[in-house]
Design a binder for these strands. Structure first.
Lengths: 339, 339
DNA sequence: TTGTAAGCGTTATCAG
DNA sequence: CTGATAACGCTTACAA
């Protein structure tokens, strides 16, 4: 394998143009330093002829600005993260930054490794897209790593609840779940089942608590609670079980859209009418929900990413260190008034 | 903004350990060059104490190996691309590479820009995940850019049909559509509608032609053809129109899963029974299809990405320059024998 | 307006 | 086994 991969250097260009590298550099990088029109043209032409393109690596090395933003996600394939990533990408690209997406499989250990890698590349900023774990054994270590990274000048921002210190842009999971639950209750449902997220995640906990509190407030015992993992399958199997056990609820809430769609799948399979017999709702309003015309609670996740990126590229330095973006219940066809 | 962001240099470590930078470098990067156990320990400790982490940038500059792989996708949020990206990411990470995902919005112009950016960062390889356009006005320019990149030593591989010269790993879109169509015909359907992809894309053309040929072979006129854009909405609206016009087909094929799910949505809305009254099928078997329990034709898209990445990190140098991976019809609940 | 030269943090070549 | 030292490709005072 030829691992050459260079376009010729500034030295080549300057030689060809008959000027110094300094001068070549000045014209080729939009420096404000004055350069005569004549010289400028010569340099530009030389660069053109050589097909020169500057090495972002070398440039980053000396300027100490890599123009790299990292996004650490739980799983790229999850539309929730894809949407956040898209938000980051869009503003990053506009500001001339590269976005590096790193998968962490929802494991803190992997997050640690990705942070290290990003740090090796001297990323200027990293956004943590996934939620953290309650009492994470690796929590302290990650917090330390983040602290060190920030001391070194790296901008860190999270778009979920995390146990390390950094600016945060997120939604209110508890309130969102609360509102969804209230909505269902307002529709006349009483036996409402909740299929949660991965155990230990703050997001899971908060969404569950929002559900529980709303139920309690309405004087209903929140007894139908199942564990999930933000995946379709667990939503499906949990619902399948309810069907099999003959304890069909009035409604089921999935801790995220994929889970709720799993529930929808199991109900369809069992030929239980939705929403006539049971209502189904998800959370976060990813495309999945829209595609299934499913009721959910919308969170501005694209904006989570976009705002985070803005902070990093320096357009949001004036923002408060904690920003909570609003959610709203999006009623669609999988929920209806209790018959 | 403090844009410092460094961990201290090799020089700092070597000074603290009382050795030369050369020696420090040797122990800190797994060089084979012999170093005494005693010195090694000193260096390791110094590095530890300083929280030293090497600059991948500086390293890349001198070794000429950036360990960066770029993926140029049409749209991250499209699960098709997300899955490919995941494949790339997985093998890249295992080989110690960083993956940079670049959005091109399905525009050749943007692809060109992304390729340039990737080239600035001296990416060792880039995988083009999206299909190309027939008679693309920018086609020649892109082909040129790719040629130059390859000359410089960059590994380029595409996982779809493209008009530039590079190794390719992909599926047979035409055959896939053909097989899907044949399957539907074998179920007794005659009036089969096809909702295509974005006009001009090779993938759109091939899938359409596969459909058309299968119809023709069966002696059926492929008359129900609608334009789409690989998005949900066009699948929905095209189907809505068929419903409104009272020309309900026996079955509808979407050029991809999102399109087919749009069709499903419109049918559900119009209270047309699926699959009893009309069958619906998609293509590529993304999670969307599975979540909707929808018939589709499966393409190993994760493997597209994984194989492409393997070539780049050097594990697939022996592979032929063109690899066609197999597809298969995945029958689920949205298709049935004609009643 | 242009050039010289000192880095940036590594690796690699050569001598000891 | 260890250490100078010259790159790598670029930016940026500082001089001229």
């Amino acid at each position: 394998m030829a691992r050459q991969n260079s376009t010729g250097s500034l030295a080549d260009v300057s030689r060809r143009a008959g000027v110094s590298v300094a001068t070549a550099s000045r014209v080729l990088n939009g420096s404000t330093h004055p350069v005569s029109e004549h010289t400028r043209r010569r340099v530009l032409r030389a660069a053109e002829e050589l097909g020169y393109s500057p090495s972002a690596l070398a440039r980053a090395l000396v300027t100490k600005r890599s123009r790299i933003i990292g996004v650490v996600v739980g799983d790229i394939v999850d539309p929730y993260f894809a949407e956040i990533t898209r938000g980051v990408e869009d503003v990053a690209a506009r500001a001339g930054y590269m976005t590096i997406v790193c998968n962490a499989d929802r494991r803190t250990e992997a997050e640690l490794a990705q942070l290290q890698l990003l740090s090796d590349y001297r990323a200027e900023g990293v956004v943590f897209a996934g939620s953290g774990y309650v009492e994470d054994p690796l929590g302290e270590e990650l917090a330390d790593a983040v602290r060190r990274a920030r001391v070194r000048g790296m901008e860190v921002v999270s778009v979920a609840l995390r146990d390390f210190d950094c600016p945060r842009i997120h939604g209110d999971n508890r309130a969102a779940a609360h509102d969804m639950t209230e909505y269902l209750i307002s529709l006349g449902h009483r036996r409402i089942a909740f299929i949660g997220g991965p155990p230990g995640l703050y997001a899971s906990r908060d969404r569950f608590e929002g559900f529980r509190d709303a139920m309690l407030t309405a004087g209903i015992d929140p007894e139908l609670v199942h564990e999930g993992d933000f995946g379709y399958d667990r939503g499906y199997s949990a619902t399948e079980r309810m069907v099999a056990d003959g304890e069909l609820p009035d409604a089921v809430i999935g801790a995220n859209d994929a889970t709720a769609i799993g529930a929808l799948g199991a109900l369809r399979k069992a030929r239980v009418a939705v929403p006539e017999r049971v209502s189904v709702a998800g959370m976060t309003d990813t495309r999945l929900a829209r595609f299934s015309d499913m009721t959910t609670v919308g969170l501005p996740i694209y904006d989570f990413g976009a705002s985070a990126a803005r902070r990093i590229v320096g357009e949001g330095a004036d923002q408060p260190s904690e920003t909570v973006l609003p959610h709203r219940v999006v009623a669609r066809s999988t929920t209806a008034r209790r018959s």
